[in-house]
Design a protein around this nucleic acid. Structure first.
Lengths: 133, 133
DNA sequence: GCTGGCGTTGACGTCAGGGGCAAGGTCTAC
DNA sequence: GTAGACCTTGCCCCTGACGTCAACGCCAGC
């Protein structure tokens, strides 16, 4: 199959596939006319990359999975190097989530403080009416 | 004070301050020699920006806070526009955390699956010894 | 033979937030 | 009077993962 079909079947663009090729992931055979030619294995490889990309993996982090598939393993995560990437990513995700929660709480606190300051500065009409009743 | 001192006191670099100036945040007076000149208000303004940056706000998102301070308010979050940014950021953070948690669980599941597959493929010697006992 | 749709390479743009350097002007201390 | 620390503008460089042309080749159908 050619590049356009592969891109469609993997839900991506030809530009992306050429980019992956410059990165050394997803190499292509060439036909007599210079067109890139791919097979079903390339599609599996590409799907593996896209799955990890959707998870937020960087391209470089997908390389062990790609090499694992190229080595003939049934799936990209059949190799220790891939499992290591999984584990590193899990730790990274945990740290990221923790950090975001901290920030979330701090921003929430700032908002609460600022909201109180605003109402103290200029009491809302509703409050006045309420107090007047 | 000049740019170097302001940068030091705010814990950033002169390059960054000039960059902020090109973005229209943190404008500076000029002395007779062409040097930028700042006062304590500028420092407060800069600290406000840095705080929000540390929270992960984009530079553009700090603009309402800057304008609020410039308008003479006691703090950058004394204005409705700033509160809106807080609220939007909170929603964004929540969505981001949720998404990361989903991914975390999916990656965790992939790892567990792959680990089982690996041990099933080539049972560890330790297991064999254990079974032999 | 011509149009449309695919393919090719290459180069530049994007987004944010600056880093680094050059070539020069200024100020201060010794 | 000069060294060195500071300032100025302007320019290109970086990351990641592509998007967007430009200019051209190839091929199928009508």
């Amino acid at each position: 199959m050619r590049i356009g079909e592969l891109a469609r079947r993997a839900g991506t663009t030809t530009r992306t596939l050429r980019y992956y090729e410059t990165r050394g992931l997803l190499t292509a055979r060439r036909g007599g006319n210079g067109y890139r030619s791919y097979d079903e294995d390339d599609l599996r490889l590409l799907r593996q990359i896209r799955l990890l990309q959707d998870f937020g993996f960087e391209l470089e982090e997908t390389r062990p999975f790609v090499e694992c598939l190229r080595a003939g393993h049934p799936s990209g995560d059949s190799c220790p190097a891939s499992l290591d990437v999984y584990r590193r990513k899990l730790a990274e995700l945990d740290a990221c989530i923790d950090r975001l929660r901290e920030v979330r709480d701090q921003v929430g606190a700032e908002l609460a403080r600022a909201e109180v300051a605003v109402t103290a500065e200029q009491p809302s009409p509703a409050r006045c009416e309420l107090a007047a009743e």
